[in-house]
Design a protein around this nucleic acid. Structure first.
Length: 954
RNA sequence: AGGCGCGUAGCUCAGUUGGUUAGAGCGCUACCUUGACAUGGUAGAGGUCGUUGGUUCGACUCCAAUCGCGCCUACCA
């Protein structure tokens, strides 16, 4: 084996082997099934750290359950990401000076499919690099035929039940993309703006009202000014009319208690129902009032084009929209209107004002509430059972508190606008005739057949497509073959767990629950594991514009500084930030990023995956875990050097649990490490079952490094290198070495698949679990280690604690007395019990080797203690005679420190025990424990104090 | 405004139902090229657990208040 671990040499080779051999497909047997649906990544996207984290967790769960023998499926696939993907291809066209309309719908969609072929492989390649054991053979795509059929089926069924309807409503309109977007695709950020206070004169010439607005241009569409009916200032004016400036229109003063807060501003609110959600609600309450209903469009006056410019008047409208502003962009119109108001003396004042500005998450432009025809899902009847599923515990959120977020959203949920005015997506299966009828069906032919419409009868399909999340909501069953009743659907629905970050609870999780309950009559998953977000080392969110993005592949392979700078600064939306990003990057990664390998990255994710907490990704951590890989690698090297070609007592053994065939002698170290291993197995399994990947990683790390490597490997050396040690003892040690390692590899495999496989292939035959040269075996399909109660050996653990304390005591003295660790020292034991003496004798080879003791003599009661430095093992004194050599100062200081510690201990416990309340009320066991401790500490204290006196007298 | 979460060693984080001297990794100090590993070993320094009260025999842990930070939802025209 190489001296250092090199992930590159093995990772891609093993992944390819696994995939070729079909190990990722669910097995045929297995009593329990276990299934995770991958949250489908965007087909045009690329992998970021969040994906890395998310997929590490899923793969760990999947590999764990596969090893446990469950029939295990990790469903692969991606979604078509309507708007995002369309935008990418439109940008490509832009480079050719073309627009999508130049191509036409069909050719444009062909272009997107071409792009999908080209880019779709990208993300799956990256997932493979992460070691994800996805079932690629059944990879699905939301636009493939089967899933499209599922979408149509669901649309039609919901429509037929009256749960899908078409309506003219205010939607969030993206004036750049020319499509409706859902609430969730709108991000509101605080921005600096102004508040314009405008005077609206009373029509009778008796003064004016002042209204304030952040969007003065919308005044062209005002239909009223509302006041609170309880407001003394305006009560008498209710019902009177105002001159709406610049328009020549008159609008009423209306009373609306719900919307108008008399305390805020002037207490007068302009009402623009076609361009504001709240105003629309006010309008709905008042539209029957004649002063409103007799206005154009019943007062619901739209003033914008799809680009959010001021629209033209229609033939019947006269000059509803003042000619002057027609064609102006909304912000130009704003400027002009403000100027014009000012000229007419109708502008009271302009205040600076901070406000929340809604922007499209894709386009970045300000979203307009806009009146359009759209398709909606009536959500309340679907939400109700979805809420109940969580309330009743059929679905469990981990961590639990996320259910509150879920309830909060589900209880305030609005009907879902599912139509999008784009071309890439599932076209709405609705056809119109010229008379305003709508027909919904599987196809045009179906519709004609169903409604007896002749081929010549003109029908045209709805131009719109469905929201991407409509198809994603069906993911848990559409990918398994629904609406066909397939075996996979039988086997794997409901799935076991959904693993995702919180930001997608609303978008996706809730919708899957609703659709799953509706169409499968069961929940789509039992658990929802919500993990944190990956942030940079300063705790900032990673984003392209901040230039602090890390690519998981770069952590795996490493990347040079220049490449990293280039990567972070290219293709930026705001090129002026490039300089700053370059500087930051050069400062933070002066040598670029070294290669850490996939296993180290995965272990880091696991180790940091404390529940519900964001992760600040620190390179120091991943470096530490790369070192851990190297540690495991070198431990293996040591084991191999000592067991290869040697008798390990495993000949003919095929399963993990068979008894040795040859005679063995097991040392306390052997029994101890086996005992520790059992407890570690237990801890790791419990941690994974409880989604505590950090605990699992920690248990593995500690066992491997602090117990197996630091102690057991060291303890094996005096046995294996001692010519006097019996063959049986050597055999026992070799067997333990190799079998503990083999167990450890299986235990670690779910988190670190590559290194464990590589090592296991070498160790397996020696451990007797596979034949040498056996093909087509993999650690992936080996049983996950289960703890064996019979191997838990408290006596051995206690005995080892004695050995360790002995060794540590001597090392400590050597360390503090400046004695070279390698220098053998004579040791004298005083106040040693028979047990101590026996242990000292039995483990002499361990003590000599690990503490470098030269001799160990027992002091009889009659003899005086020589001038020494002292360590305590229980009541036994371990003396290192230092006649003449003793550093009086140093030793006194050392003892004083120890004594200080002991003393405060003793005082604290004495005080506690003197308190009758404690003695009376605390459980007996706690009190006893304190008493024992006191006895122990007191005796140690005494010993140390005597020793100190002795030293001082020298 | 409401909801959720966080505040523990210089840094990144554990700490399970209240009961050891509050732990780990990284970093730091000293020593060690010992034959698995310098991506290493040995020893060590470092914390009044944000603050203040309260409950309790006992609080990092439970309760209340308070300060600071983050996120989400809704917003005042």
């Amino acid at each position: 084996m190489e001296k250092t671990y090199d992930p590159h040499a093995i990772e891609q080779r093993w992944y390819q082997t696994w995939e070729e051999r079909g190990y990722f497909a669910p097995g045929q047997s297995g009593s329990d099934s276990y299934c995770i649906m991958i949250p489908p990544p965007n087909v045009t996207g690329s992998l970021h750290m969040g994906h890395g984290f998310n997929n590490t967790i899923m793969d760990t769960l999947i590999r764990y359950h596969r090893m446990k023998g469950d029939k295990t499926l990790w469903q692969a696939g991606s979604d078509h990401a309507g708007i995002a993907t369309q935008m990418v291809v439109e940008r490509q066209l832009e480079a050719e000076n073309k627009k999508r309309h130049d191509l036409g719908r069909e050719r444009f969609i062909d272009r997107i499919w071409e792009w999908k072929q080209e880019s779709g492989g990208n993300i799956s390649r990256q997932l493979r690099r992460l070691g994800s054991s996805l079932d690629w053979q059944h990879e699905r795509f939301t636009m493939d035929d089967g899933l499209s059929e599922a979408v149509r089926e669901v649309f039609i069924r919901l429509y037929e039940e009256g749960l899908i309807y078409r309506g003219k409503r205010l939607v969030n309109w993206d004036p750049k993309l020319h499509t409706a977007v859902s609430d969730l695709e709108v991000l509101s950020e605080e921005e600096y703006g102004h508040m314009w206070h405008m005077r609206y004169p009373l029509s009778n010439g008796q003064g004016h009202l002042i209204v304030a607005t952040t969007r003065p241009e919308t005044m062209l569409g005002d239909c009223a000014v509302a006041v609170n009916p309880g407001d003394e200032r305006y009560r008498h004016l209710i019902g009177e009319l105002l001159e709406l400036p610049l328009t020549g229109r008159r609008i009423p003063i209306i009373a609306d208690e719900e919307h108008v807060d008399p305390e805020f501003g002037t207490g007068c609110v302009k009402i623009t129902p076609a361009h504001d959600f709240n105003d629309y609600a006010v309008w709905q309450r008042h539209r029957d009032e004649i002063t409103i209903s007799e206005q154009a469009h019943g007062g619901l006056i739209n003033i914008f084009t799809v680009d959010a410019a001021i629209r033209e008047n229609e033939a019947t409208e006269g000059s509803l929209i003042p000619e002057k502003y027609i064609g102006m962009d909304r912000y130009d119109a704003r400027k002009q209107i403000v100027t014009d108001l000012q000229e007419q003396g109708l502008l009271e004042k302009i205040d600076d004002h901070k406000l929340m500005v809604p922007r499209g998450d894709r386009s970045g432009v300000v979203i307009e509430p806009y009146l359009t025809d759209q398709w909606y899902v009536k959500i309340a009847p679907l939400a109700k059972p979805a809420i109940e599923a969580v309330e009743s515990g059929r679905i469990r959120f981990v961590p639990d508190n996320w259910k509150n977020t879920y309830y909060e959203w589900m209880r305030n949920i609005q009907d879902w606008c599912i139509s999008r005015q784009i071309w890439w997506g599932h076209r709405i299966p609705a056809w119109y005739d010229d008379r305003g009828n709508v027909y919904v069906g599987r196809s045009e032919a179906d519709v004609r057949a169903q409604h007896n419409l002749d081929q010549s009868y003109p029908l045209r399909q709805d131009e719109d497509v469905l929201d991407t999340w409509f198809s994603s909501a069906l993911w848990p069953f559409s990918t398994l073959g629904w609406p066909q009743q397939t075996e996979r659907l039988q086997d794997f629905y409901p799935t076991s767990v959904l693993v995702t970050a919180f930001d997608i609870i609303f978008f996706w999780v809730a919708r899957m629950i609703m659709m799953g309950l509706k169409f499968m009559d069961d929940v789509p998953f039992r658990d929802v594991y919500i993990h944190g977000l990956i942030r940079d080392s300063h705790g900032d969110k990673m984003s392209k514009s901040k230039g602090n993005v890390l690519d998981p592949i770069d952590l795996i392979d490493g990347i040079g500084l220049e490449d990293l700078v280039e990567k972070r600064t290219s293709g930026m939306m705001q090129p002026k930030l490039a300089k700053k990003i370059e500087q930051q990057t050069r400062k933070e990664f002066p040598d670029g990023i070294p290669s850490f390998g996939t296993d180290a990255l995965r272990f880091t994710f696991a180790a940091l995956a404390a529940t519900g907490r964001d992760i600040k990704f620190d390179l120091g951590r991943i470096e530490g875990y790369r070192n851990f890989c190297n540690k495991l690698w070198n431990a293996t090297r040591y084991v191999m050097m000592n067991v290869e070609g040697q008798d390990c007592g495993v000949q003919g053994v095929k399963t993990g649990h068979s008894e040795p065939t040859a005679k063995l002698e097991r040392s306390v170290a052997d029994r101890w490490i086996m005992s520790r291993l059992q407890k570690t197995k237990q801890a790791v399994a419990e941690a994974i079952e409880g989604y505590r990947f950090d605990h699992a990683a920690q248990a593995i790390y500690e066992f491997t490094w602090n117990e197996y490597c630091d102690w057991y490997l060291e303890l094996s050396k005096p046995v294996l290198n001692d010519d006097n040690a019996s063959l049986d003892a050597k055999r026992g040690t070799r067997r333990t070495l190799v079998r503990v390692l083999e167990n450890l590899l299986r235990l670690t495999h779910p988190v670190m698949p590559f290194i464990t496989e590589e090592i296991w292939q070498r160790v397996g035959p020696i451990a007797g679990v596979i034949d040498a040269g056996q093909e087509d075996v993999t650690i992936m399909n080996q049983p996950f280690p289960t703890p064996r109660r019979s191997l838990i050996d408290e006596a051995a653990e206690e005995e080892m604690a004695w050995v360790m304390q002995f060794i540590l005591g001597i090392r400590k003295i050597k360390g503090e007395m400046n004695i070279a660790p390698g220098k053998p020292v004579p040791v004298i034991l005083a106040n040693a019990s028979e047990h101590d003496k026996a242990l000292a004798k039995r483990h002499r080879h361990f003590l000599d080797f690990l503490a470098r003791t030269e001799s160990i003599d027992i002091l009889t009661e009659a003899e005086d203690e020589p001038e020494s430095s002292i360590a305590l093992v229980g009541d036994m004194k371990v003396l290192i005679p230092l006649a003449g050599l003793i550093d009086k100062e140093a030793e006194s200081k050392r003892l004083e420190k120890e004594i200080g510690r002991m003393q405060s201990d003793v005082e604290r416990i004495e005080k506690k025990l003197a308190n009758s309340n404690f003695v009376d009320k605390a459980p007996q066991a706690v009190v006893d424990k304190e008493r024992d401790k006191l006895t122990e500490s007191k005796s140690a204290l005494e010993t140390l104090q005597l020793q100190l006196e002795k030293i001082r007298k020298l």
